[in-house]
Amino acid sequence: MRKKSLVYSLFFQVGILLLLFVLQFILPTYHHSSVSKIMVLASYAVAYNFLLGYTGLMSLGHAMFFASGMYAAGLGIYYLELSALGGLLFGAGFTLVISLIFGLFALRTSGVSFLIVTLMFGQTFYLSILYFNEFTFGQDGFSLAKYLGKLVIFNREYLYSNPDIRYNFAFILLTAYLLISTFIMFSPVGRILIAIRENESRTELLGYNVFYYKLFALVLSGTFSGIAGATHALLFTYIGSTFAEIHHSISPILWTLLGGAGTVIGPFIGTGIMFYLVDFISGITSNYQLVVGVVLILMIIWFPMGIMGTLRQKWMKWLP
């Protein structure tokens, strides 16, 4: 059974990734660029799902990780004159440390308390960006465009903002995230994480140190969110406190739940649908927030498992 579902799910995901890869040759300019952005944001959602979907911990402060990756990369490139890839690594390393420290504190709580602790740490981080504005450029933020070098591939130079570079960079990021996500799902660690989600005390009774597994999930989730943030900084060049605001913590919750928490591909589907929903409705009415709110309420009432979660329950039992 497990082997069969692994094969099925690999086919399914490889299919979706192939589709995404081919799409870049067909899509008109606007959608080409939108899909690039969706893939970066979806990576953030996939990272979020490591924690919510597999471990059952809901965080309201993930913007802190996204923004710390983004700011570490951006400020590293700006002040320390790192290369773009150096900035990316710096962002990843910085977020790793942040999420480790954060996890050691926050994981002493669980459930609603965990949610609020994450919210508060997230707000503290956001406020510190404003407070140290001389250094971080505060609310206005700044553009990396002038400080980014060029990407050299086979002796040819490309701008990071080049549409093809952007698309494929985002594509590689998402592919890596999805593969890692699948891998974890089928690994022993993933099984234990899911066991924690389903019944934490029983897992503990079985002799597993729940804290370390949760810490692993959180650090993984945080660091990957940070890498998504750093990638966003490189590809879209703008860095600002808006990425640390509470709204940016709420977004991945919506994307993940809409697509299906605990499914590998769900966060990507959710991000894509939400992006285009807002994009489409905002062309018709300025009250797209109203529609988003209603969708959210209806979703949570009728499809609490999200799109892919419902599909998995009804038809695609093998779906990872």
């Binding site: 609310q139 206005d140 933020g141 700044f142 553009s143 465009a145 879209f236 060049t237 703008y238 600002g240 406190s241 808006t242």
Partner: peptide, 10 residues
């Protein structure tokens, strides 16, 4: 101005 900062690079 923060919207200008965010949009102008694009």
């Amino acid at each position: 101005s923060h919207v200008v900062m965010g949009s102008a690079p694009r």
